[in-house]
Amino acid sequence: MRELQIVDAAELASAYAVAEYAAVVDAEPLPLRVGRRATDLEAYVPAARYAFITAWNPASRPRSDAANQAADRLLVAQLDALGVVRHPAWAQDPQGEWHEPGWLVADLPEDDLLRLAVEFGQAGVLDWPAGEPVRLRMLMPRPQAVRSPADTDWVAG
């Protein structure tokens, strides 16, 4: 298990909350946004619960493509062992300067999602039940006296 050392957790949460996310289903990129419902995605991939997870750049610190790809292969192996439906996905900042591949997963139990996110050093994941807005789950304690972005939950990882 990795311990995250984030200089400014609130700033990181704000960046994740405004990031652009998409899942690719049948060669069609379907957008995901924190705080908005993912109706197109949910129509294509029926499930009770959805999540976005990546193994790239733990704690938002850049790593080599080779290291990121190796971590991604390990994540895929664990997702496949759990038998969940997965689709290629990505996240990027609004300017397109920071881009990370990841996975949209359907019906991954919450405890497995959080365990994998912590194992792969992630500071946050997207997680939401069908029909509800996409939520950002930050895997660290909420900073004191800081206004949290809407649709963001803080989970001490």
Rank of each mutant, 00 (worst) to 15 (best):
E3W: 12
L136Q: 02
S148M: 04
D65Q: 11
S60I: 01
I6H: 04
S64A: 06
L108T: 09
R2M: 12
G102W: 01
Y44N: 10
A106F: 15
R37Q: 11
P129Y: 11
D112C: 14
T39C: 08
Q92P: 10
D26G: 11
A43E: 10
D127S: 15
Q92A: 15
R86L: 13
Q69N: 13
L82K: 08
A117F: 13
G157T: 06
L113R: 14
M140V: 08
L108Q: 08
A91L: 04
P58T: 03
G131C: 14
Q122N: 03
V134S: 05
A51L: 03
F52I: 00
A23F: 04
A81E: 10
P31S: 08
A130W: 11
L32W: 07
V105K: 01
T54R: 00
D26M: 13
Y16F: 04
E3L: 13
A9H: 03
T39L: 11
S14F: 06
L139S: 13
P129A: 12
E97G: 11
R61P: 00
V45H: 02
H99Y: 13
Q5E: 15
P88F: 02
V84K: 02
A77L: 09
G124Q: 02
D127K: 11
A27H: 15
E132P: 02
L32C: 03
I53S: 00
V125C: 08
S148K: 04
